[in-house]
């Protein structure tokens, strides 16, 4: 870090974290590998959130995250079965995959709070499904192989369905009050 950058707590924002040009997969195998990695990593992140919420005794949200982890895990298993794979194949080397550091369906690791409510968890899920839908849509647009384009369109439609399902789920849970994160006995009290 330069002395100037070290001096300030607010470093200048870079224009982009990681922006590879999106190269469409050349084969169905490559395409399904991407889809599998997306589902697996999404499931792992939800499981991590579920564990964290259990430790914080936020059991309602923990159960919700656990359910999401199971759903994404089932999608991953489905892909493995369809492709006849017994282990996750490596991502094709040298092929650009997605923008950013993590797969589009993975919820960002830092967007959780010990007092969060089901509404927040579902917002995270909604954003993840929407990113996945957009990703497959983009893949379909840049695909040069007809079978890959068809598969991308199929998964785009599936993700769109998931978006609608999460929206319907969201409509059933109460929206948190504005002071949902206020804790009279906060764990990070420093006075």
């Amino acid at each position: 870090m330069t002395a100037a950058a070290r001096k300030t707590t607010k470093p200048a924002r870079r224009p982009a974290a990681r922006k590879p040009a999106l190269n469409a997969p050349r084969t169905i195998r490559e395409f399904m590998t991407l889809a599998l990695v997306m589902e697996t990593e999404a499931s792992q992140r939800y499981a991590e959130f579920a564990d964290a919420m259990e430790v914080c005794n936020n059991l309602e949200v923990a159960a919700l995250f656990r359910k999401m982890a199971d759903i994404e895990g089932r999608h991953a298993t489905q892909i493995m079965t369809e492709m006849g794979w017994s282990e996750v194949p490596p991502l094709p080397p040298g092929r650009a995959t997605w923008e950013g550091f993590e797969a589009p369906e993975t919820a960002p690791g830092d967007e959780v709070h010990y007092l969060m409510q089901p509404w927040h968890a579902l917002q995270l899920a909604l954003a993840s499904e929407q990113r996945a839908e957009a990703f497959f849509g983009r893949l379909a647009r840049v695909a040069t192989v007809a079978t890959v384009r068809r598969a991308a369109l199929e998964l785009e439609a599936e993700e769109r369905e998931h978006v609608e399902l999460v929206k319907a789920w969201l409509a059933k849970v109460p929206k948190p009050d504005s002071d949902w994160a206020v804790d009279p006995d906060p764990p990070s009290y420093t006075d």
Partner: peptide, 28 residues
């Protein structure tokens, strides 16, 4: 023998880090 996957290295203890802490990802 089947290759070891990441889960072979993860214990059954649940981390007690604050939700959202970067250390979860480091463990992974």
């Amino acid at each position: 023998p089947a290759p070891l996957t990441f889960s072979a290295y993860k214990s059954a203890y649940k981390p007690i880090w604050c939700p959202g802490c970067g250390d979860y990802s480091v463990l992974s």
